[in-house]
Amino acid sequence: MIDIPHTLGRDEAKRRMERGVGKLASHIPGGAATVTHSWLSAERLALTVATMGVEVPCTVDAEDNRLRVTLHLPGMLSLMSGPIAAIVEKQGERLMLADKTDRTI
C-alpha cells in the first residue's frame, strides 16, 4: 500500500481523481500503456494498467486526508516494488490531485 497525503478532503480528492484518471496512461514510461478504470464505490477507483504484455491491477481509495493506492504487482514486477512505489508516491499528487484550475499568486 502507498499513502499519498493531501489536505483536500475526500470529495475534492475524488473530483480531482475523476478529472485526472484519463491522463494517467501518458505518464507511464514506455509510451505504450493503456489504463482502464471503473468506480467500485463512491470513493474507490479500480485501475488496470497494461503495458508490454503485463497488466497491473490497482485500487485507489479517496480518504479525507490521503489517497491509499494498492498495487497488485505480478511475478517479476514484484521484484521492483520499491522503485515502483517510489514513482507512484512521487507522481501521485501531480497526476491525481493537481488541479490546473487552481491559481495561486
Rank of each mutant, 00 (worst) to 15 (best):
D3Y: 08
I4C: 01
H6K: 03
T7R: 12
T7M: 09
L8A: 07
E12V: 10
A13L: 03
K14Y: 05
R16Y: 07
R16G: 00
R16F: 01
M17E: 01
E18R: 12
R19Y: 03
G20I: 09
G22L: 11
G22C: 12
L24G: 00
L24M: 07
S26N: 04
S26Q: 06
S26L: 04
I28G: 12
I28D: 08
P29R: 10
G30K: 08
G31C: 05
A32N: 10
A33Q: 10
T36A: 14
L40H: 13
S41Y: 04
A42S: 15
R44I: 13
L45S: 06
V49K: 00
T51N: 13
M52A: 15
V54L: 12
E55Y: 01
V56M: 09
T59S: 05
T59Q: 05
T59Y: 09
V60M: 15
A62C: 11
N65A: 14
R66M: 00
V69P: 06
V69N: 05
T70E: 15
P74Q: 04
M76H: 09
L79Q: 13
L79M: 14
M80C: 13
M80V: 09
P83G: 06
I84E: 12
A85F: 03
A85L: 02
A86G: 06
I87S: 04
I87W: 03
V88N: 02
K90S: 13
E93T: 14
E93L: 12
E93I: 12
L95G: 04
L95F: 05
A98S: 07
D99C: 02
D99M: 03
D99S: 02
K100W: 05
D102Y: 08
D102G: 07
T104V: 14
